[in-house]
Write a protein that binds this DNA or RNA. Structure first.
Length: 877
DNA sequence: CATGTCACG
DNA sequence: ACGTACGTGACATGC
């Protein structure tokens, strides 16, 4: 084993140093880049020189630390961080992520304390440690095993402080640096020290007495009457100053050496970051270097193809993966299963699985903990072989999603790559795509599947460490992991869909469509493809010479909101709108859904659990989260969704105004909270507040406007967006917004805080610590920046609502089991859960479901759930 | 395979 | 001055 070497970097101090050491550079977007550039230069140099096996960049967290409770003036009088530097922090973090360097921060502690604590751990293990900082304070950490390197003038000029060097420079031991600070103070941190005592006097005193305490014990031996007086007068101050200057080497950090191993940079990730920042020289250097990914890809792995699962791998803590011929796992062929304990890896072709009772028992045994990548897919596929799996404790796909939802996670390869492991090929490289898709020879499949299981096993520790650092372990383990099993079961259960009902609606639609089509051709004086926006544009705006209201980048816009404005100018408009509406129903919902009904008479959707940027689910093949409801004609489609057993009924429950309630809670706005506590109609109440009238005087138009404003607030409001929605001028919209924000000052504050937080940290969070990174939040491009700002306002709200219903689903699943009910959860539509159950269970279900949903998360406002039942989904209203 | 449109929360 | 409401998926058209 190679000798370990730990590198600990003080992120904030190095960023400051770099910022002031270099001229203000910018990239082509106008973003300042000098601090990132200096940091990168330093990093390249240090990596080459030190060849570390472990690395960490520590950041300061929060404005106040435990030191402020000792002395509230600590670091007082400091200049605010220049905005030109602030905007660089998200890029720094992104760059470090690309380098695969672990980053850590801890609420109310400073980077110094994190570094101090880790360096003590390393020193105790006798591991060589190098601390890199721009701050001389850290020299107190120097030790036999710990070298402190301080950057000088430039960023790459570094001075190493070993205990010997400290002694040479000050005549003191590293420990005594703290005592020196106690006596002389530190202007940059606003540590007072003893007035009148400077570096010279402090060193002299410490050489004589050793420590601050020693000075006071031997105070009579201090030479000089004035000095003695000053020391006596300021004893408290000296001792407090020493405390302030002391780095906490026992901070409650949640990571250890094991969590900060450094695999080397992922140049495929680093180079795009350099490119974005216009670091040409660094790109050239990096391009020449051998990327680590290639060597890893070339790494041979050991695996065996076996007919049955070996007993040696039917234990707890094993990674398993079900290899499928296709991503549509409800119908795909099961090719085989791979198992790995990190050393031994095997692949079992599907033929061997069916009769393997030991494997089946191991799978179903909850005490046999299992590691996976995409547990939901494996579970749903295994269910088709009659196999049940329990005891899933790790899912690489979900972990990668929680760490960063913006990464496109298409397969095990992309998830593994997120954590620096490139030893898994993409599924597409093995199976091909489109028409060329095919299952290759067994040997190829076996190696591919084996690599996945091995990757899962190898990455577990790293990945869980990262989740813990980000305080996301609970979200991942208690919410997303259990939910995967539940969703898999919902998908496998499916929803019974009456072919006959869809066909009947389809026939009716076909007749209406044909009639409308003829009328449209008659009015146009010619036949054309009504579904072609291009042809329709020519008819409407050239031949009929209707006014052009909006253009798209390819021609005239014929979108519904545009046609809406042309109504009354020509009778063809209404017909086109109706044709579009009915055509949509026919193609997407009648023809589309009919194609999705399986042999069992059910539709089995796929929930994407690792896709949306906000934490919501999405539904595909088919999408059952956008079945029509707003217009009666479309709503009838829901009549086709029925219970799968005779004597059963459909049952649905939905959260009322969940996003506005979440906003009330997160903003703490008193008026909004009061409105929900009183059970007021929220849109009427808003209208009353905004228009300054009593509730009984709110007109329907006022309520409609208020409703639009409420939506706008949740979306991250803009006057333009609201004006479009309400069809009013931008000025009027701006006035509405101003009045709203004046009525709900807490909301205004929340919006500002969300954006500020995003600018500082580079991400926003939900109540359950789901994150979304917003790299464009400091962009010079108005569009990109505005979008990121609205996202910063919307994501915590939409995401927290998603957290809440997910938690309700996990709890609901347990409750159904506990109560011994037959009822089944079938669908989730963002704020709504749909069940089927025996009629006899209705009474119990209509109590339990709202109870569980309302209690899912305790907020400062009540959650309200409404429910209904009936013979089809249509009737649950 | 991109674009426009429209279905949902 | 800039020009968009937040989050999704499916379908038809046309290059």
């Amino acid at each position: 084993m190679t000798k370990q070497k730990v590198l600990l970097l003080d992120g904030n101090s190095l960023a400051y140093r770099a910022f002031f050491a270099l001229p203000l550079l910018t990239n082509d977007q106008g973003v300042h880049t000098n601090a990132v550039y200096g940091f990168a230069m330093m990093l390249e140099k240090i990596l080459k020189e030190e060849q570390p096996t472990h690395m960490l960049v520590a950041w300061d967290a929060g404005k106040t630390t435990f030191r402020h409770s000792t002395y509230k003036e600590y670091k007082g009088g400091r200049q605010k961080t220049p905005p030109e530097l602030s905007e660089q922090f998200p890029y720094l973090r992104k760059m470090l992520d690309a380098y695969n360097i672990r980053q850590y921060e801890l609420e109310s502690f400073e980077a110094d304390d994190i570094i101090g604590t880790l360096s003590r751990e390393a020193a105790a293990d006798g591991v060589e440690t190098v601390v890199i900082t721009g701050d001389k304070d850290l020299t107190q950490l120097a030790d036999k095993a710990v070298t402190v390197q301080i950057t000088r003038k430039g960023m790459t000029d570094i001075e190493a402080y070993t205990p010997e060097h400290v002694m040479e420079k000050y005549g003191l031991t590293p420990d005594q640096i703290i005592d020196m600070k106690g006596l002389m103070g530190d202007a940059s941190d606003n540590i007072p020290g003893v007035p009148g005592v400077g570096e010279k006097t402090a060193i002299k005193l410490l050489k004589q007495f050793g420590t601050v305490e020693g000075v006071y014990e031997g105070i009579d031996g201090v030479s000089g009457k004035k000095l003695k007086e000053k020391l006596v007068e300021n004893e408290e101050l000296a001792k407090m100053s020493k405390t302030l200057a002391t780095i906490n080497t026992e901070s409650p950090i949640e990571i250890g050496l094991a969590d900060i191993s450094y695999p080397g940079p992922d140049m495929e990730q680093v180079i795009p970051v350099f490119r974005e920042l216009n670091f040409r020289t660094l790109i050239e250097k990096a391009d020449g270097a051998q990327p680590v990914t290639e060597t890893e890809e070339a790494e041979d792995i050991e695996y065996k193809v076996v007919e049955q699962a070996p007993g040696s791998l039917l234990k707890s803590g094993i990674a398993f993966h079900v290899e499928l011929s296709d991503e549509l796992y409800h119908t795909a062929d099961i090719l085989g299963v791979s198992l790995s304990d990190g050393d031994e890896t095997v692949y079992i072709p599907a033929a061997g699985l069916e009769g393997d009772k030991q494997f089946a028992d191991w799978l179903a045994d909850d005490s046999m903990k299992k590691l996976t990548v995409d547990a939901k897919a494996s579970l749903a596929a295994l269910a088709r072989l009659g196999l049940e799996a329990d005891g899933i404790v790790f899912d690489l796909l979900l972990a990668a999603y929680i760490v960063n939802p913006s990464v496109s996670l298409t397969d095990a390869s992309s998830a593994a790559r997120e954590f620096g492991f490139s030893g898994v090929s993409e599924d597409q490289a093995i199976y091909g795509k489109g028409a060329k898709r095919a299952v290759p020879d067994q040997e190829t499949v076996a190696e591919h599947a084996s690599r996945k299981a091995l990757a899962v096993h190898r990455l577990r520790e790293t990945v869980e460490g990262r989740l813990k650092e980000n305080k996301q372990f609970e979200l991942y383990r208690e919410l997303e992991i259990p939910l995967a099993t539940i969703l898999g079961r919902m998908e496998a259960t499916g929803v019974k869909t009456e072919r006959g009902i869809l066909e009947e609606i389809g026939k009716d639609l076909a007749g209406k469509l044909e009639a409308i089509e003829e009328q449209i051709y008659a009015l146009a004086g010619q036949t054309f493809n009504i579904n072609s926006t291009k042809q329709l544009g020519v008819i409407l705006f050239e031949e009929m010479e209707l006014p052009v209201i909006k253009k798209t980048k390819t021609g005239y816009s014929t979108a519904a909101d545009v046609l809406e404005k042309l109504r009354g100018r020509h009778e063809i408009i209404d017909l086109i709108l109706e044709y579009r509406q009915l055509g949509k129903l026919q193609s997407t919902y009648i023809e589309g859904l009919l194609k999705e009904i399986h042999e069992d008479g059910k539709i089995h959707t796929y929930y994407q659990q690792a896709l949306t940027q906000t934490g919501r689910l999405s539904s595909t093949s088919p999408n059952l989260q956008n079945i029509p409801v707003r217009i009666e004609e479309g709503r009838k489609i829901r009549k086709a969704f029925v219970p799968s057993e005779p004597g059963w009924v459909m049952f649905a429950a939905d959260y009322s105004q969940i996003e506005l309630r979440v906003l009330a809670h997160m903003s703490g706005d008193e008026r909004l909270i009061a409105a929900f506590r009183e059970g007021a109609d929220i849109h009427t109440r808003t209208a009353g507040d905004v228009f300054h009238v009593e509730a009984q005087d709110v007109t329907p138009d006022m309520r409609r406007a208020a409703k639009a404003v409420n939506f706008g607030i949740v979306y991250g409001i803009s006057d333009y967006g609201l004006s479009q929605n309400l069809n009013i001028t931008r000025k009027e919209a701006a006035e509405f917004i101003d009045r709203y924000l004046a009525s709900f000052p807490g909301v205004k504050q929340y919006m500002e805080d969300s954006v500020a937080e995003a600018k500082e940290k580079g991400f926003v969070s939900t109540l359950m610590n789901r994150r979304r990174y917003l790299p464009d939040i400091n962009s010079r491009n108005f569009n990109l920046r505005s979008f990121a700002e609205r996202t910063a306002m919307n994501t915590p709200i939409q995401g927290t609502a998603a957290d809440i219903i997910k938690k309700a689903m996990v709890e609901m699943d347990m409750r159904l089991e506990q109560e011994g009910l037959q009822a089944r959860m079938l669908l989730q539509v963002h704020d709504e859960l749909i069940f089927e159950c025996p009629e006899e269970e209705l009474g119990k279900l209509s109590e339990i479901v709202p109870d569980v949903m309302e209690a899912a998360l305790e907020l400062d406002v009540p959650l309200l759930v409404e429910s209904a039942s009936g013979p089809s989904w249509y009737d649950t209203k």
